[in-house]
Amino acid sequence: MTEVHKNKTKKRNNEFKTGCKKGIPICLGYIPVSFTFGLMAVQGGFPPWFPIFISITNLTSAGQFAGLQLILQNSTLVEIGITTFIINIRYMLMSLSLSQKISPTMSFLKRALISYGITDETFAVSSMEKEELSFGYLGGLMIGPIFGWTLGTSLGAFASSLLSDRIQSAMGIALYAMFIALVIPASKYSKKITAVLFLSVFLSCLCTWTPVLNKIPSGWKLIVATLVSAGIGATLFPIEEGQK
């Protein structure tokens, strides 16, 4: 092995390790959520392998919960497909945003693999990184959450008494607290980011609490709030290159 080659391998290992470390909190936060999912599915009358099968193939929270509900209600396949698609459209925005942060030379296969692991949380953590995102980093970041999501589902399906109601309830706030921990430090140093953040919070509340607007399906609420607030941000406070 040449010196250059060795350094490259070492760098790749380090990126992978950094990713893994950053994935641990997401992994832990996923356990109570997917636990609830496993529990609900078994209570709905499905065998334990079924929610685990859903968790591995879908790897998403809102979409899975809605999908399970619809399957239980014996909805049509078209209805199930459209509803879960609407809930998941937000991933397009995240995927587009990430496409600008990874190396243009990353192969198609690697991109296709990374796509599977894009969740609200892995997106949140990786989009706060300053540097270009490597395959090693993203892979490392996603492994923990994938494991946690599957583990939590299995625990909920097989050992529903493991987490008490109280602990389950309290842990429900974990992922939101994590989002806050990601967003606040950045907004502390940028009034522009703070403005966009408040605007999207305001729009999200508007879409939740005001009559008429609260009829918008929840998958769209997030998209409307995001498009409008990031759009206004881009128009009022454009980012100069190199200013970030």
Binding site: M94, F123, A124, S127, S187, V196, L197, V201, S204, L222
Partner: peptide, 10 residues
């Protein structure tokens, strides 16, 4: 701005 907008609304 998208990450901050998404997270705020989420």
């Amino acid at each position: 701005y998208v990450p901050y907008a998404v997270l705020g609304a989420m």
